[in-house]
Design a protein around this nucleic acid. Sequence first.
DNA 1: TGACAAATGCAACTGAGTTGCATATAATGC
DNA 2: GCATTATATGCAACTCAGTTGCATTTGTCA
Lengths: 136, 136
Amino acid sequence: MNSTQIILRNNDLKSTPARLAILSFLSEQSAPRDVEDIIVHIANEHETVDRVTVYRILETFVKKGLIKRLEFGEGKYRYELAGDDHHHLICESCGKVEDISDCHISDLEKEISQRKKFLVKRHQLEFFGVCRSCQR
Amino acid sequence: MNSTQIILRNNDLKSTPARLAILSFLSEQSAPRDVEDIIVHIANEHETVDRVTVYRILETFVKKGLIKRLEFGEGKYRYELAGDDHHHLICESCGKVEDISDCHISDLEKEISQRKKFLVKRHQLEFFGVCRSCQR
DNA sequence: TGACAAATGCAACTGAGTTGCATATAATGC
DNA sequence: GCATTATATGCAACTCAGTTGCATTTGTCA
């Protein structure tokens, strides 16, 4: 039993080929992926999973807190493994998404919770601009 | 000629009833609105504007920098007047969106620009959680 | 006030995501 | 192993936000 299977079991989720494929795929990614990326990847692995199943698995994983659902103004969702708190640099020229960490938003979060009496559960911070290679 | 008309003229946009209605509606709002809100508001004012026209006007305004297009994980866009740099508290219980300012992200933006050689043009920061009244 | 570029309305379309329901399958107990 | 059962999947049809093409209307400026 590999680590992906253990994660599923620990979350009361059956180990199915589709779930294992999606979870391990997302584990390998360094930037958030959309549903299309996932379907293409699975097809390349010579497996077949219905789009609907992919949507449902992603929804399940989000609810269990295994992955995060993000939006970068593209009119669709992207998904990444949950875990460390980090943010994104999104290049508006080529669409590349880079991860970035050490943003110390949690101090700000604490301050807001007190000032506004708003119970902050999570936040999302994205920077939009032009990446290094597109600047040339 | 009122201020809304002046804004349109300064941006090389013709003054049409639909544009005036949308721009003045968004000027009055304290939280970002979706397309449905806009259409309902216009209908209440006994005007008729096609949905397509609303979409096109919003796109035009975004391109001109008059308004900002936002996403709060709802699968649709929301719009607000551009201007001061502020962020949002989104209640996951009732859906209410509250504005918040003084977040000093620009220091962080500067630091990232240097460290990552990424030209940051804008950022988006949202806090998700439970608002004051939903906490009771 | 007429010309013309720009804006609008209509209809048809796209693409992401959802729902209902019948079938298949992973986990569990025997 | 094998039957049971809750759960997951596939298919088809649908919804909802937003887009495109094209003909018509309208605001602006000479």
